[in-house]
């Protein structure tokens, strides 16, 4: 069911990871991704995995939740893996049949690439699981603040993002409901060719759009009547402030990246 999608979901908690400033977590995620793409050999990879594992442990997010978040991407991971498996040439030939040859290097790259994608997603999932969307957008807004000088509407973008995240579950629920209602009238979303299927989506998409517009309209009215008038003069209940733990976490992140680069140089 659609409801099982966990993207952008937040699991409230009160762990060290939850308490970190969202800016710290955003930067750490970037560092983590950089490290992930820098690491090409085992030691570096092990370090990145260790970093993620410790973060997950500290956050007390169940591994099961991370895995279920990875589930929708399994096909992408598989395709990447298979492509790498078949198209990487190397020196150590393992199997050869018909026009396909698989090299040991191919196996290695396939595993690394698949792992890399999964680690990438797992890291970002951890970010969204432990950071409320509002904090996340606050953090982004604050990090991107310098862009205001070149007239990028940072506040508006951040507000739009947080509202979009707020309405994802609502719209998913609504999609489920409209789908059931149309199926009760004999709509068939499963069978038929591509064009038939696309056409069959109209009874779902049109009501969904209409409803999204209605919601947007009502939400705008509600926001205005709660005195919203843009970012000017607005304060925040949850002030972002960097604590000791944030600096320590960042230091750990920098260390991670440095080590990974070092390992890459050393080739271990």
């Amino acid at each position: 069911m659609l409801k099982d999608i966990t993207l952008g979901q937040y699991y409230p908690g009160d762990t060290l990871v939850h308490r970190l400033d969202p800016r710290t977590k955003l930067i750490l995620t970037l560092i983590y991704i950089a490290a992930l793409f820098t690491a090409i050999v085992y030691a570096g990879y092990a370090l990145v995995v260790l970093f993620l594992a410790v973060s997950i442990l500290l956050s007390r997010i169940r591994l099961r939740n991370i895995l279920s978040g990875l589930k929708p991407l399994i096909i992408i991971v598989l395709i990447t893996g298979i492509l790498n498996l078949f198209y990487t040439k190397g020196e150590h030939l393992l199997v050869h049949f018909w026009r396909i040859s698989i090299y040991w290097e191919g196996v290695e790259t396939a595993i690394f690439m698949a792992l890399r994608i999964m680690l990438l997603i797992a890291g970002t999932l951890l970010l969204t699981y432990t950071t409320s969307p509002l904090q996340l957008t606050d953090g982004l807004e604050s990090l991107l603040n310098p862009l205001k000088k070149i007239r990028v509407p940072v506040h508006e973008l951040a507000m739009m993002m947080s509202i979009a995240l707020r309405f994802i579950p609502t719209l998913i629920e609504e999609t489920d409901k409209i789908m059931s209602a149309q199926r009760a009238r004999g709509a068939d979303f499963e069978t038929g060719g591509l064009i038939a299927k696309a056409k069959a989506m109209l009874p779902l998409l049109i009501p969904l759009f209409v409803s999204a517009f209605r919601r947007a309209d009502e939400l705008a009215t509600a926001m205005e009547s709660r005195c919203y008038h843009g970012g000017e003069g607005r304060t925040r209940m949850k002030q972002l402030s960097m604590a000791r733990r944030d600096w320590i976490a960042l230091a750990v992140g920098v260390l991670l990246l440095a080590l990974v680069i070092l390992f890459r140089r050393l080739g271990i």
Binding site: S180, A181, A184, R185, G186, A187, D188, I206, P207, S211
Partner: peptide, 28 residues
């Protein structure tokens, strides 16, 4: 067995009332 959901007005989608009512019978 006809099933009408809560707030069923949110499932309307056709250009005209006529075509919307005809959706079920056409699927039959």
């Amino acid at each position: 067995v006809g099933l009408l959901f809560q707030y069923p007005e949110y499932q309307l989608f056709e250009e005209t009332v006529y075509r919307d009512i005809a959706f079920g019978p056409k699927n039959m």
